[in-house]
Design a protein around this nucleic acid. Structure first.
Lengths: 225, 225
DNA sequence: GAGCATTTGTTCGTATGTATC
DNA sequence: GGATACATACGAACAAATGCT
């Protein structure tokens, strides 16, 4: 018979198998997963069972099903998917404070653990921010900005941490875009100072730079709201 | 609750309705929700439709279904539910660092925003920790310890923050229990110093106390591992 | 332990809307 | 517009687990 035992929990078994493929990166974010017919053949489960398993991952925010087109990977972590959906963009203060908590500590750790590639990534994103800003492409500049903040968290080398932070990234990127198209400033020098501090391995200075930057945003937000 | 219009996305409508009842506390954590037959009657949707909606919330970690017994509320936030399930207890260092990020910033905010009730809660938990420790009930002492840390985050008055933190609490409580039954020490004076600093409104001292405490745990963990 | 009511678990069949060719 | 395939929703019947008497 098949490798999957028939009866109770069959859907859950298939669900876990799909989740595993996604988590381990064999089906990267953005890619299309095999058709239901193929999945049915691969797993040995009925097509109805496969459909149900896929649906539960759609509910969980990991997959996106488009009729006639296929099923695509939206995120590789349930934590990220749920946070992205649940975080209320209207609570700007709360979001900024969460960023402050996560990023300041991440900057501290990044200064202690950064690799050469980490630094190269951050410098590349800095340059990209600068270039897009000069070119007037504020949309791209905001995305580079968000990517730079994420790169700091990546450099902390803590995957649990990164899972939580990535749930914040989409909402944060939206905020940055609105903010940037409104004010036009990119705070390039502040970001450069942050990367320099991490590069130097100066944890205290990295934390202080980021803390000051986010505090300024918070103070201005309190003034507006 | 509101009745439901037939058409597309009926399952999603029911799901959102159930989620709303849970989020708004009309169905508290631990309580049993109406039977599928009742839900079907209340919403006007068929039982299979209700089942599908319930299933998605089961998968999200908000509900728990027991055959012959009923369906029970497990958590009131998807963020909390997913984090609780996904956080890997084996990654002790990562978890401690996440706690450090969340709790140190929370302590800072708590010192600025604590209410009289917040302080009363924390003092009550401090006393409980002490009492259980003297009585030799380490299990209860560990739970009071975890509850105290949670109370600090509550005092920060940031619900987004609390959602994330509560996902960490169950795993953290387990750790504390293992830790406490191993070492037998409760660090009562450190906790008292933290509460005093928050009570005094001294943000810097509160942050420093908690940062020092968690850093010590991290350092010892690095030594062991 | 036996019996019974309640509740979820599973699987059919059927009807109806909806997308695609 | 018509035909086909698919997705969605409903209902019904029975199985299995639980809790209470």
């Amino acid at each position: 018979m098949q490798s999957i035992t028939r009866g109770r929990g069959l859907v859950d078994q298939v669900t876990e198998m799909l989740r595993g493929e996604i988590r381990q990166g064999r089906w990267p974010v953005g890619s299309r997963i095999p058709t239901e017919a193929e999945l049915s053949r691969i797993t040995g489960a009925g097509r109805n069972t496969v459909r149900e398993a896929v649906r539960s991952l759609v509910h969980a925010g990991l997959l996106d099903r488009r009729q006639g087109s296929g099923t695509f990977v939206l995120a590789d972590s349930s934590v990220t998917a749920v946070l992205r959906r649940e975080i209320d963009p209207a609570r700007r203060r709360e979001l900024l404070e969460l960023r402050q908590a996560l990023e300041v500590t991440a900057a501290t750790l990044a200064a202690q653990r950064r690799s050469a590639e980490d630094i190269a990534d951050m410098r590349r994103l800095l340059a990209r921010m600068d270039r897009h800003h000069r070119d007037g492409d504020l949309d791209a500049a905001a995305r580079a900005d968000a990517a730079l903040h994420r790169a700091v968290v990546v450099s902390a080398h803590n995957s649990t941490y990164l899972q939580v932070y990535e749930g914040v990234v989409p909402t944060m990127t939206e905020e940055m875009l609105a903010e940037l198209s409104h004010s036009g400033t990119v705070y390039l020098s502040e970001h450069r100072a942050l990367v320099d501090a991490i590069d130097d391995g100066d944890a205290a200075r990295a934390a202080a730079t980021l803390h000051g930057f986010l505090s300024a945003l918070l103070a201005r937000d309190a003034g507006n709201g």
